[in-house]
Design a protein around this nucleic acid. Structure first.
Length: 817
RNA sequence: GGGCAGGUGGUGGAACGGAAUACACGCAUGGCUUAGGAUCAUGUGCCGCAAGGCGUGAGGGUUCAACUCCCUCCCUGCCCACCA
């Protein structure tokens, strides 16, 4: 028998699978129950596949192959998130066209994926940069626009100087560009937004009914950031005798300062108000501000700062009092000073707060610095609340709050809100951190936004029949602040769909996350030219049953996809409102030094090298054996050899088959226990322990004189989803003509997995003292008798009386003495 | 500062509240070999000659019994962070 040569075996079977796509394609017409097993489709970066991809795809491949053997009709598709900044930036760096680069990278990814033996349905391959695909990305834009969920507005937006484009909030977390890690600045620009905030509550509620990691659900909840509170209207009192002119009065509507608070119960402790530099109050009441110069100087400085500088916690809070104006607390009728400070965010709540230094850390810090009054209005009997040193921020009992004194915080919030509403001085209000999704990008490599601007008719959607709006060729696709699409007059100049007059196209492209927010629908019907996917086909395959991918997509892709799904649901396109029933993240594969694999650290392990050296089956097994799927783990090239040895043992085991020889009942029992263990472990995505169970079986088989063909075949079937190439080869060597993957998954005999003889643990006072063999199901009395016969036990029991006996069936007996 | 994961041999990691360290790597000794980074066998938590004792980040608690449950704290990683 020849030596196990993984390279030869793997090449052979990869060619075989290429000729037999029916082995991995989802069946269009079938009575078998469906299962949609999806990987987050990759953006084909120039670096090729990394170990995280291998881990992700191996896990889903094992699961898919297992389910097919179990008789399920599995949809396990593959595609490319080819549009977007990563591909474009890479293309620019090597001075190539993004489309060329994308296609080249897709080729590399395809080769690598095939070299690992992943069982994708290649007939459904999609590419988000293909006009046949992005036609439907544009359709989704029109769908949202038609339903009032896409709109254009001028707003302060995140701008990345390096990428030369605007970014969504989610892509500018902490004031850093998600892609290039450079600082993001704020700019006023008119842009397209998706109204994701309309679904804020549904996006929170939906989390309760899906099987996702708790950490991911919590992160989404925190990102949406729902808080219940109240709007309070403080009347503005002018210090100067000069009343504002009639015109100014009109423009104001009301002389009110609206603040948002979640701690209405602390209102009697409000000693000043603070507004964001962007708050309109300042420009509206300019003539009334006695220190206007000082205020405007502060605002100019604040606007110069990046978000990062403004939100730097280590930095002391700054602010300027707006002299000439006061705000009147509607509860106390007290006029308090108003400050402008850059720690107040214009985009959250009303862009203004009531400051209660005694009960808010930020207000406390500010009040201390500017020597403002600190008024205590909440007490807590259980905790010492000294507002001398720090703010007391917990709920408690109200004091110094007139008729609300002695109420609990909760009760007071309720009664105060009612009073506000009754007197029309404010109302209950729920606010969210979540902002609408800014989807415009001043970049080349994306789906053009299908909108046309006409001087007469304003913005008009491109008629659906005219889709796709093709991404035009341009001379220079590098970013330069405005979209490169604008440099192609043939693209820009068009006619108005409404009046037929001259008009210009929108030149921005869409955020690549728009492409990936709906791709999982397309896999149900990837070649459809009339719809994004046929209704019946969506019904057949969706929602996704198991979704595996990186945790870095928690608040981006996963939230956006849920939004798209909810929008489709709301408008009657689909009958479910959550896209991914079960979600799991693979852990990060760290380098051997425990740090992240990165080019700059020169610690990246390339899957190609490992496949070449050890074989794809070994790499697959190794990545699964490293530890639980969701844990991060350190790569260790030294340890791979153990998995190679395991496969070599299996290979050699085949020559031990002899059906004439005797068989061992113990081995048969172990075999069935292994079937049970491996089956359950795959179901629970615990691949590491499934592999160790197979190792134990193989070690035991090795010790036999001979093994039966049937026993080896079962082992081979169990191994097949993990190491498909070697399993196919051994199956063929056993004389079978068809693929092992057409075999049924082995079933265990429930009678055989039950032990006839068990090891009974004997404890004295909870400590192990002896272990004896006993028949399974042994009764307590008999177990006690057997245990007390043990020499060791006799020794320990000398001169002691048994107080109590704890008996756990088939497990242990514990004497308390 | 908040949230979420974690902390078990030399290493990666196992363990329905019931034998702590399965499985694998590494290491040690030996066999086979001209050779071994191949392979096979045996051993491998710590202290102790032994009997035995001690051991899952630290300290308490619940329990006949705790890696597992509860409380306090420390440390590491990831994510978010002036959200009123």
């Amino acid at each position: 028998m020849p030596k196990y040569n993984p390279q030869k075996v793997e090449r052979k079977w990869q060619e075989y699978w290429e000729k037999h796509p029916e082995l991995t394609e989802a069946i269009k017409k079938s009575e078998k129950p469906k299962f949609y097993c999806l990987d987050m489709f990759p953006y084909p970066s120039g670096d090729g596949l990394h170990m995280g991809h291998v881990e992700n795809y191996t896990a889903s491949d094992i699961y898919s192959r297992y389910l097919r053997m179990k008789g399920r009709n599995v949809l396990h598709p593959v595609g490319w998130d080819a549009f977007g900044l990563p591909t474009e930036n890479y293309a620019i760096s090597i001075k190539a066209h993004p489309a060329e680069v994308a296609q080249r990278n897709i080729k590399t990814f395809t080769r690598q994926i095939k070299s690992l033996g992943f069982s994708y349905d290649w007939s459904r391959e999609i590419d988000s940069s293909d006009p046949n695909y992005y036609k439907w990305t544009q359709w989704f834009f029109l769908f949202l626009h038609k339903n009032g969920l896409a709109y254009r507005k001028k707003a302060k937006v995140n701008w990345c100087e390096s990428c030369q484009t605007v970014l969504a909030n989610e892509q500018a977390e902490g004031g850093i560009c998600e892609r290039c890690k450079n600082q993001v600045i704020q700019k006023d620009m008119e842009q397209w937004f998706f109204r994701i905030t309309d679904f804020a509550d549904e996006l929170i509620k939906g989390l309760d009914k899906i099987d996702w990691p708790e950490s991911t659900k919590t992160a989404q909840k925190n990102w949406i950031g729902r808080s219940e509170g109240a709007i309070i209207r403080f009347e503005i009192k002018l210090n100067s005798k000069a009343k504002p002119s009639g015109l100014l009065r009109l423009s104001l509507r009301r002389d009110n300062l609206e603040v948002f608070t979640t701690r209405l119960d602390t209102i009697y402790g409000c000693t000043y108000c603070v507004i964001a530099p962007e708050n309109e109050l300042i420009s509206n009441l300019k003539s009334q501000i006695s220190n206007l110069n000082e205020v405007e100087k502060y605002i100019v400085q604040a606007k110069k700062k990046t978000d990062l500088q403004r939100t730097d916690l280590a930095k002391e809070k700054t602010g300027v009092e707006i002299k000439g104006l006061k705000a009147v607390n509607p509860f106390t009728n007290e006029a308090v000073p108003i400050f402008v400070a850059d720690y107040i965010l214009s985009t959250y709540g009303t862009g203004a707060v009531m400051a209660v230094p005694a009960h808010d850390e930020r207000d406390f810090e500010f009040a201390k610095k500017y020597k403002l009054e600190i008024k205590e209005v909440i007490k807590n009997e259980n905790k010492i609340s000294s507002v001398e040193k720090a703010a007391f921020i917990d709920d408690g009992i109200l004091v110094n709050s007139e008729k609300y004194s002695n109420l609990t915080s909760e009760k007071a919030r309720e009664e105060m809100a009612r009073w506000l509403e009754k007197n029309n001085l404010g109302e209950r209000k729920t606010t969210y951190k979540l902002r609408d999704w800014l989807i415009s990008r001043q970049r080349y490599w994306g789906a053009p936004i299908p909108m046309i601007f006409c001087e007469k008719c304003s913005w008009q959607p491109v008629p659906e029949k005219d889709l796709p709006v093709l991404l035009p060729e341009v001379k220079d696709y590098r970013p330069k602040g405005t979209s490169p699409l604008g440099t192609n007059p043939d693209f820009v100049n068009t006619t108005c769909p409404e009046c037929g007059g001259e008009a210009k196209r929108e030149t921005d492209t869409m955020d690549t996350f728009v492409c990936s927010s709906w791709y999982f629908f397309r896999f149900a019907d990837p070649k459809n030219e009339k719809e994004f996917a046929d209704e019946a086909k969506i019904k057949k395959w969706l929602p996704v049953d198991l979704y595996i991918g990186g945790a870095e997509h928690t608040v981006l892709h996963l939230l956006y996809s849920r939004f798209f799904t909810k929008a489709l649901h709301k408008h009657g396109y689909i009958d479910f409102d959550e896209p991914f029933k079960k979600l799991r993240h693979q852990g990060i594969v760290l380098a051997e030094d425990g740090r992240k694999m990165s080019k700059s650290l020169e610690n990246v392990i390339n899957p190609d090298e490992i496949v070449e050296k050890f074989g794809a089956d070994t790499l697959r097994l190794y990545e699964m054996f490293m530890g639980p799927l969701e844990d991060s783990k350190s790569w260790n090239t030294k340890s791979i050899i153990g998995l190679k040895r395991f496969l070599e043992k299996v290979w050699k085991l085949k020559s031990m088959i002899n059906d004439q020889g005797s068989t061992n009942n113990k081995l048969e029992i172990l075999l069935h226990k292994t079937i049970k263990k491996v089956t359950e472990d795959i179901e629970n995505l615990r691949f590491n322990t499934a592999i160790s169970a197979m190792m134990i079986l193989v070690n035991e088989m090795e010790k036999q004189k001979n093994i039966l063909n049937s026993q080896f075949s079962i082992l081979n079937s169990l191994l097949a989803p993990f190491a498909p190439h070697i399993a196919e080869e051994l199956w063929q060597q056993l004389g079978h003509k068809d693929s092992i993957f057409l075999e049924k998954w082995p079933e265990y005999d429930p009678k055989l997995v039950k032990d006839e003889e068990i090891t009974l643990i004997i404890q004295i006072n909870g400590k192990l003292r002896d272990q004896i063999k006993a028949p399974a199901g042994v009764k307590e009395e008999e177990a006690k008798r057997l245990a007390l016969e043990s020499k060791k036990v006799i020794k320990y029991m000398e001169g002691k009386n048994i107080q109590k006996v704890i008996f756990v069936k088939d497990r242990l007996i514990n004497f308390v003495v």
